[in-house]
Nucleic acid binder design. Structure first.
Lengths: 295, 295
DNA sequence: GTTTCGGATTAGGATAGCTAATCGATTCTA
DNA sequence: TAGAATCGATTAGCTATCCTAATCCGAAAC
């Protein structure tokens, strides 16, 4: 019972390209270059002996053959991905505990976590939000997301999101009575500080400005409080891009100036190496990176 | 709408291994080594984070996870292979003409051709059986199967079956009144000749026997007549293995002695290069090699 | 008419995948 | 009970697939 199957990886490329009607977008989705998709499709068309796409100059269309081929190919891919999810899910009963800092939990993780829950409805996901570092040997934690330098011995560490630091404030600041145009204008406003982040002094040095008293203002011990104060219009915060992306998108905050510090720290996914082979941990890890890439 | 799909080639290996419950047999089917299948399955199990097979000492069994996973995987593969066949079939209306010699047509091709017809029922397959060489420019032939040295300029040539020459005769010869045990016993029997094949003289030289009159006997212009005479018990033929495999399997002929000539000639699939990219020609070519491998 | 957009093409490099050889465990055979 | 055969695992190294970077080309947009 031997089947004649075309190159399967090329089929995946075909499905994505047909869905987007664009090799470039398909390449994005598959995390490869446009050239790779072009090659794969060409190979598939040669294998089949007939063209699947009509290349117009600016647009892409399926040929009749391509239109006929797409539904079953998509169906097969769906079957496989659903079966795979089901398999992992079946092995993933019980709880899954994620440990992370309160700021990251509230500003990034929790707003997205529902999508993970939808994919694995039977999984009992718990978020343990604490600024304390986890001890995997003593605590029942499956995966941690930590902010730092990425150096934790004996643990597997994967960089999830890189940091990017810039000032944010309430939208009214841009056209208020003392509009913020140049970094120097900061001296007329309250500065918000938090313990973990880099300091205003460092940022001012990078922005090459003097004359701002970088110690003025309010100070909090967790970034989410600092950001909440900024949202409420109580001052200007030096924010990590990861944490404010949603607030900026929703118009609750605006980004000020174009000076940006790349920041040497990052958010890392962390656990003992063998944890990563457990299906539910792997599923969570993969999902986290999927979400991170979508940012 | 990005899917999380396991490595697709590994899935194909899983499906085959699960079907045979044997890595070795799966490897045969996929035309790779046992080690390749072992690697693929291992990679898949690691990707999923759970074992799919239980390896017992001499036997292989699916784990529960494997049992749950198999049906959808198989279904997806079926979907793909059926859709692919359908696609090629749709593009393959009209006739498909194969040109080959009468002996090959009657002894090898026609007995198998029904399986091809079943796969592509809409295709109108014609066998043009002639000892004349085809002129693709003048005749409406899609693919030829020729016996010879493999050297035809300007045509794409692929070796389908290698030749292997040995004497065959009616089964009763083995225990008749003059039983054939040693090659020298040939002198008591009728020799059957045909024009195309190598001669008895060459064979006797290879078998290092003298004293046989290699010109005695009946002579035909096509191998199938020679073989028919042998089947009817009229003598002993020097046969090409390809042509007599079915007759031997059915007990109509037996192979005599263990002297075998490797033969420098072979059966080749032949057509102008660009013919091979046409779906129906490609389908036929692939099927021919599939059948040839099954021999 | 210059720029931009999207796919094709080319050559070169990375990695996935395969093979050959060998091992170890088990079972069959004599 | 020894030896042979079977079947999967493992290792190291090679091959071929696949991918990338750079560039090209044609059409459309500005």
């Amino acid at each position: 019972m031997s089947r004649r199957l075309p190159p399967l990886n090329a089929l995946r490329a075909f499905e994505a390209a047909a869905r987007h009607l664009s090799f470039t977008k398909a390449a994005d989705e598959l995390h490869v270059t446009q050239a790779a998709v072009s090659h794969q499709i060409k190979a598939l068309e040669e294998w089949l002996g007939l063209p699947l796409f009509r290349r117009m100059n600016r647009a892409l269309a399926l040929t009749e053959a391509g239109q006929n081929y797409l539904p079953p190919v998509r169906e097969a891919m769906d079957t496989l991905s659903q079966a795979t999810d089901r398999l992992i899910r079946a092995d993933s009963s019980g709880t899954l505990t994620i440990s992370t800092m309160p700021s990251f939990a509230s500003k990034w993780l929790v707003p997205r976590l529902m999508r993970f829950q939808n994919r694995f409805p039977d999984m009992d996901v718990r978020v343990q939000s604490t600024s304390q570092v986890v001890d995997f040997a003593r605590q029942d934690v499956d995966l941690a997301i930590r902010f730092g330098s990425g150096h934790w011995p004996d643990l597997r560490v994967e960089r999830l999101l890189t940091e990017d630091i810039y000032p944010v404030g309430h939208p009214s600041l841009l056209n208020g009575d003392r509009p913020l145009v140049n970094p120097e204008d900061l001296c007329h406003h309250t500065l918000l500080h938090d313990d973990y982040n880099i300091s205003w002094a460092v940022w001012c040095r990078a922005a090459r400005i003097d004359g701002v008293d970088t110690e003025r203002g309010l100070r909090f011990d967790d970034s989410s409080f600092t950001l909440q104060a900024a949202i409420n219009g109580h001052g200007i915060a030096l924010a990590r891009g990861v944490l404010v992306a949603d607030d900026i998108a929703a118009g609750r905050l605006v980004r000020l100036f174009d000076v940006r510090l790349p920041g040497s720290l990052a958010y890392y996914v962390v656990a003992p190496p063998h944890y990563f082979s457990r299906p539910k941990v792997k599923a969570l890890r993969d999902w986290l990176f999927e979400e991170a890439e979508a940012t």
